[in-house]
Amino acid sequence: MTPADAGGETGPAGTTPATDIAAGVLLAILALAALFWIVPAHTETAVGDYDVSPAFFPRLGAGLVLVLAFTLVATGTRRHLAGHRDGRPGRRVLAELLIWSAAATATVIGLQVIGFIATSALVIAGWMLLAGERRWLLIGAAAVAFPLVVDTAAWVFFTVDLP
């Protein structure tokens, strides 16, 4: 049963300790980068008379994420040492993320180069195939008709030219 099947937002079961540790380490790295590199380099740190500095809230957010990330690593390690191996593995998300990144990049480039209708047709056909749909007539019809309908509706009702 996938989490989506279970419904709700994140599904009932927790994730494996290894996944938690990995997530915690990644978040900690991001938070450290934000605290010591991104925020100082790209944010005004001077303090006004009665105000906190513009960098205060970014630091607060990143700092709290850092603390929580360490806690996550700690609890994950404890669970791991205690021999718990239950929960969903997070490993397969890496493959999905790769596929998604490629698809998203292609979509953005497609929108700029070949336009909304053609890109949408490819998006619809591609994802339908991935989802296991093999009724070619249905795929073809949806990929051609739906973008045309959306594009026309956007123009007629909103006077917006989709890219």
């Binding site: 700029q112 336009g115 030219d161 890219p163």
Partner: peptide, 11 residues
């Protein structure tokens, strides 16, 4: 429709 217009403008 004026898609080609926008795209030409963009290019």
């Amino acid at each position: 429709m004026s898609h080609s217009t926008t795209r030409r403008g963009l290019l």
